[in-house]
Simulated scan of single mutants.
Amino acid sequence: MKYFLLLLLTITTSGSLLAQGLGIGQPVKDFTILADYSNTKAVAVIFLNQSCPNSRLYENRLSQLASNYAAKGVTFLFINPAISMEEGNSAAGGNTNLKLLPDNGQKISQQFGATKTPEAFLLQNVNGSFVLKYKGAIDDNPQLESSVKEPYLRNALDAVLANKAVAVSEKRALGCMIKRF
């Protein structure tokens, strides 16, 4: 019994360390896509899966955010961490103006520590190196955009663009679990 508990503790600890991914203030390494955005002020990496109801609820909000912040120097990357693109794009009536990039082998979602869809990661360009400034929920109300009281991602975007500290740098994302293989 003692060995079983020790093994369980080891597995639990190892799994939680692997799932942590990037920490606030850490630079992103070996994410080659970012080289294409060296002239941007920030990059918002959003993990979405159109078969997830919560992801679908955020499509219009994310499209609007991406449109509003593009002129301010922010690029939005929408990443599909589904095991296959067919699984992640199976929803009927999805917003087609959000181009989902595949996460082949789920390397990107694992590097970032993404566990849910939707989940946001805001990276600030600091002298050519992208540093994580916010991770988590997009806002506090997935159901009704009109009832949002705390727009976490928007607040983080505004702080980063103003070169200020992000007041809420982490907020637990709510949504569908990312299936790992």
Rank of each mutant, 00 (worst) to 15 (best):
Phe181Arg: 09
Val126Cys: 02
Ala120Leu: 05
Asn54Trp: 15
Ala92Gln: 06
Pro118Arg: 01
Ser14Pro: 05
Ser147Asp: 07
Val148Asn: 00
Leu98Cys: 04
Lys116Phe: 15
Glu59Lys: 02
Asn163Glu: 07
Ser55Ala: 07
Phe181Ile: 14
Cys176Asn: 03
Thr115Phe: 09
Ile24His: 01
Ala66Thr: 08
Gln64Gly: 10
Phe130Arg: 01
Thr96Glu: 14
Pro151Lys: 00
Leu9Gln: 06
Ala66Tyr: 11
Met1Val: 13
Ala120Gln: 02
Arg180Ile: 15
Ile83Glu: 13
Lys164His: 10
Gly94Met: 11
Asp139Ala: 00
Ile178Tyr: 07
Ala165Thr: 13
Ile108Tyr: 12
Val28Asn: 06
Tyr3Trp: 14
Pro142Met: 01
Lys72Asp: 12
Asp140Phe: 04
Asn49His: 10
Ala44Phe: 11
Phe76Val: 05
Pro151Asn: 03
Gly21Cys: 08
Val45Gly: 06
Asn89Ser: 06
Leu161Ala: 02
Leu34Cys: 10
Glu86Gly: 05
Gln64Arg: 12
Gln64Cys: 08
Lys29Gly: 14
Pro27Val: 13
Lys99Ile: 15
Arg61Asp: 13
Pro53Cys: 05
Leu100Pro: 02
Glu119Thr: 06
Ala42Leu: 05
Ala44Val: 15
Gln110Tyr: 13
Arg56Val: 14
Asn104Phe: 15
Phe4His: 09
Ala159Gly: 03
Leu122His: 03
Thr115Asn: 09
Arg172Phe: 14
Leu5Thr: 12
Asn89Glu: 07
Ala19Lys: 03
Lys72Met: 08
Asp158Arg: 00
Gly25Arg: 00
Gln143Tyr: 12
Lys135Asn: 05
Leu174Trp: 14
Ala165Lys: 06
Ser16Glu: 12
Thr96His: 14
Leu48Asn: 10
Leu157Cys: 03
Ala156Phe: 08
Ser90Ile: 05
Leu65Thr: 07
Gly128Arg: 01
Arg61Ser: 12
Ala156Glu: 01
Leu153Arg: 00
Ala35Asn: 15
Ser90Glu: 04
Leu7Ala: 15
Ala19Cys: 04
Glu119Tyr: 09
Cys176Phe: 11
Val166Ala: 03
Ile33Asn: 09
Thr40Ser: 11
Tyr152Ile: 03
Val43Lys: 01
